[in-house]
Amino acid sequence: MTQEGVNSNVSLSYNSCRFNGFFVPLQSDGLETIMIDQVTLFLENSKGRLADACRVLADAGVSMHTLVIAETTDYGVVRIITNKPNDAINALQEAGFRARLTKVHALSIVDEAGGLASLLETFNAAGINLEYAYCFSTNKGYAIDIVRVDDPERLNAVAAEFGLKLLSPQDLYEY
């Protein structure tokens, strides 16, 4: 999928995240692939289904950092970042939902104008294609960009080369 293809899909999440910022040049963790667990949930487009899923997560004591929905006519794919991904999966599966863990990258950038543009230009130049992306702001002046790319190894190398901050699960949950 091209970046153009993705951008239209995720524009809503970007807009709603007041995303601004430049990269925060933090220390790189070398070439080791640093990825986090995202909870992916398959939902039919039927009344109350998302509410049901959220209630299951609430009852399991799972708090969400962010939740985005990629919707089609018949179904939606819900992507959730939480600090308890395994608990979330177990609770959802037990309640009969189709949920699974997906490895994605989390990048930390400064919450300022131009941050995302620069990041995507870097991806473009490196030949990395986005499958999808979304982001959320923290209350500490950082934004976190979640991406799934076609070539995770390459993203890791690019992150090391350009000093992009890839967040580990531990990093992420401190926000």
């Binding site: 999928m1 992916t40 990629a70 089609t72 794919v77 992507r79 189709r98 699974r100 499958e131 999808y132």
Partner: peptide
């Protein structure tokens, strides 16, 4: 879909 089908990407 079967349980281990990777539905994370809509494509």
């Amino acid at each position: 879909t079967v349980a281990d089908f990777d539905f994370d990407e809509i494509k």
